[in-house]
């Protein structure tokens, strides 16, 4: 409890709560759109952008955001139009950004430590500016998810049907990808480019095991994500473990717990 009085711990706690809310929404979108692996490509693009910023002395978050939004902008139309199988285009972008990450780490050795921080994240060193950025992005993501609930629900159900009833389905699909890019970049410093994928996906898939309602899925996904953050942070502090990894492992435990006690499957088995 004493830890709660320390500003660095308060900031870390605030960061996991904000990250939990935004990742909760993003996870539902990428999972239901079946583009989960796209998040990996976006997070590695953000990582490459972050490293480039470190090497060139630019601010990390805006450059990382630029990289991930451009990646989402390239992958979105490719996934939608289906000329190339989405997995193929995601694989190409992923390997390219990964190559860029290792190239930058190799070329500028002094950037390696900071680069590793972006890879694994560092919850306990989150600054005030990082928190403000996280807060703004979380608020905008929440307003988008709630304000356009019906349009997003329709696109998540079936993009072509949504378009057939007169909705701007492609626009909403691209906006969801845009928010993924921005959200992932905002989590780079706290959760890290490698681990953010798990924090986005695990809580959403866990929530999917429980409910048939999108509203409840959003709520549960955010709740599981926040719980992963708070419990993971507490465990990391208590047992002197890396915070980002603890957070992600708790989210995995929640996922396996929901899978084991999945009410949907029990309902189906009971006929």
């Amino acid at each position: 409890m004493e830890l709660l009085s320390y500003p660095f711990f308060q900031r870390a706690l605030m960061a996991v709560i904000l990250t939990g809310i935004s990742c909760g929404f993003l996870g539902v979108w990428v999972f239901l759109l079946k583009i989960s692996f796209l998040t990996v490509a976006i997070s590695h693009a953000a990582l490459a952008g972050g490293l480039l910023a470190i090497c060139s002395g630019l601010p990390v978050t805006p450059v990382a955001m630029g990289f991930s939004v451009v990646t989402a902008g390239i992958l979105g139309p490719l996934s939608e139009r289906g000329r190339i199988h989405p997995e193929t285009s995601i694989g190409v972008i992923f390997s390219t950004t990964l190559g860029l990450v290792f190239l930058l780490m190799g070329m500028v050795p002094e950037a390696r430590t900071q680069g590793m921080n972006l890879l694994w994240g560092s919850l306990l060193t989150v600054g005030k500016t990082d928190l403000v950025v996280l807060g703004v992005i979380t608020v905008i993501t929440t307003v988008f998810a709630v304000g356009y609930f019906k349009e997003i629900h329709s696109v998540l159900f079936h993009q072509e049907l949504a378009k057939s009833s007169g909705l701007a389905a492609s626009l909403f699909f691209f906006l969801m990808l845009f928010f993924c890019g921005v959200g992932v970049s905002a989590c780079l410093k706290s959760i890290g480019g490698l681990l953010v994928f798990s924090l986005i996906l695990n809580p959403a898939v866990a929530a999917y095991q429980i409910t048939y309602s999108l509203k409840k899925m959003y709520a549960l996904s955010c709740l599981f994500s926040i719980a992963s953050g708070v419990v993971g942070l507490a465990a990391a502090t208590a047992f002197n473990l890396p915070a980002g990894a603890s957070v992600v492992l708790v989210s995995s435990l929640i996922f396996f717990g929901c899978l084991a006690f999945c009410p949907k499957r029990r309902r189906k088995n009971n006929g």
């Binding site: 239901l32 019906k150 349009e151 629900h153 329709s154 998540l156 159900f157 049907l161 949504a162 009833s165 007169g166 909705l167 999917y208 409910t211 048939y212 309602s213 999108l214 409840k216 899925m217 949907k264």
Partner: peptide
């Protein structure tokens, strides 16, 4: 298992 009920699918016709 998609989180969409039948009544929501029918209502989606009116979203536009």
């Amino acid at each position: 298992e998609i989180p969409v009920l039948v009544e929501e699918v029918v209502m989606m016709g009116r979203y536009g």
